[in-house]
Design a binder for these strands. Structure first.
Lengths: 238, 238
DNA sequence: ACCTGAACACCGTTCAAGT
DNA sequence: ACCTGAACACCGTTCAAGT
């Protein structure tokens, strides 16, 4: 809608900051370098601006990180709003897969979603925004859930998503951020798959290393989700 | 065993640092104030020592945090070693409850166990120490599990523990660290249970706030663990 | 109105110096 | 051998000053 290329002169190319731009840049920055490397000075530099300019749009680093989390969950809601589901099982499937998609796309941001303290103690990560939880509970109740069944479902799906998706994120995040080339040595050696760990004292682990390294996260997510839905089916039929 | 009160003179009361003392103090410090407040200078002060003295015993802050995680898992192994189990179901129950106990006792440390990158990509949080995983896999294999069943069980119990225990930790951690009195205002008002959130746009959440606030984490853990063991029983019987 | 420069308090970390 | 002091590079953040 609003002017995408500037109708104004040739060097109005920097349209000034905005809260939205700052937050979205922060998401991209974390995707690229991890949350630890996100400093006010570094983010400023990536926007061609001094660190202090950011303070006009966010109240500080904490506010920025909280906004990053909110930005991710907002994107999730936008996607979800377009979806209709005939059954609550279908709704839960769609919902869970969208959350997984967020985690897969932003493995270095997801730990923030997982571990930052929610705004209220009864909000549970990763579903930690009021409007997201409102939509989730209302959808289940619209599908005939009792209040307590809806709350119970919110609880156990939170644990499920947190467990599976944080696990994936931590592993993927390790891969991504270890591509962050050290440049220490002339990086001659070191490239063996296991990071030079001495496994001689752990024969079982050594024997099963191959099996342990296989990635079945997608399938485990699907199977676990099915099992979870079965448990909910049983719970509400009681 | 080793001299608990100093046989030496009256002011040998500071027996010097040691890696063990530094790491254990760090655990206590995080328990009390959270990982974010743990600075080398603050930990030094809590040991009546300059920050730089710590560098003789740990190689830096990263090494210290990694050692804090290892310390927690080591304590877990010590407890576990004494246990015998007639059945693998009993072993998994005992194991899971011990991990939960760690999380409950150290809610501000557990997020570190959950989110720090494991030493190898095939180690999964929260069971991210080699010797712990070695013991776990061997126990299952001794109970008749196939290699792949043991690995599969390691995977799904990792997700389960991570989801349930990090959720508990984040909530408990919020409670604990908000006791960290702000001292800003004469803290006159603010003490309403929900942190002054405006729920008027979220009628379902508002109606269910009471139900959402109830703590059933213990029971959900037990039920989820039973369901998990049932799934494993089914898996190995195939 | 929006961004900058300089400054402050506080980090992690190094290294020469003390005892 | 073990700890300290001083220093360096780098944080988040405040505030007066620029445009």
């Amino acid at each position: 809608m609003d002017r995408t290329f500037d109708a104004a002169g040739p060097d109005k190319a920097r349209p000034g900051l905005s809260r939205e731009l700052v937050v979205k840049s922060a998401v991209s920055f974390i995707d690229a370098h991890g949350a630890q490397k996100l400093t006010m000075r570094a983010l400023g530099a990536s926007l061609d601006v001094e660190a202090m300019a950011l303070y006009r749009h966010v109240s500080g680093r904490e506010d920025l990180l909280e906004s990053v989390v909110a930005e991710l969950l907002r994107g999730l809601e936008d996607d979800l709003d377009k979806q209709l589901s005939e059954t609550w099982q279908g709704y839960l499937q769609t919902f869970a897969h969208h959350v997984r998609q967020i985690a897969v796309e932003h493995p270095l941001v997801f730990p923030l979603v997982a571990t930052r303290h929610p705004a209220a103690p009864w909000l549970r990560p990763p579903l930690r925004s009021l409007s997201l939880v409102e939509g989730f509970l209302r959808a289940l109740i619209d599908h005939g859930f009792s209040d307590s069944a809806a709350v119970h479902t919110y609880r156990i799906i939170s644990s499920f998503l947190l467990g599976h998706l944080l696990l994936e994120s931590v592993v993927r995040g390790a891969e991504v951020s270890s591509v962050e080339i050290p440049l220490d040595e002339g990086n001659a050696i070191v490239p063996e798959g296991d990071s030079g760990l001495d496994l001689s004292r752990f024969p079982v682990v050594m024997r099963l290393k191959g099996a342990l390294s296989e990635d079945h996260s997608r399938r485990e997510f699907e199977i676990g989700l099915e099992a979870l839905i079965d448990r909910i089916e049983f719970f509400i039929s009681q």
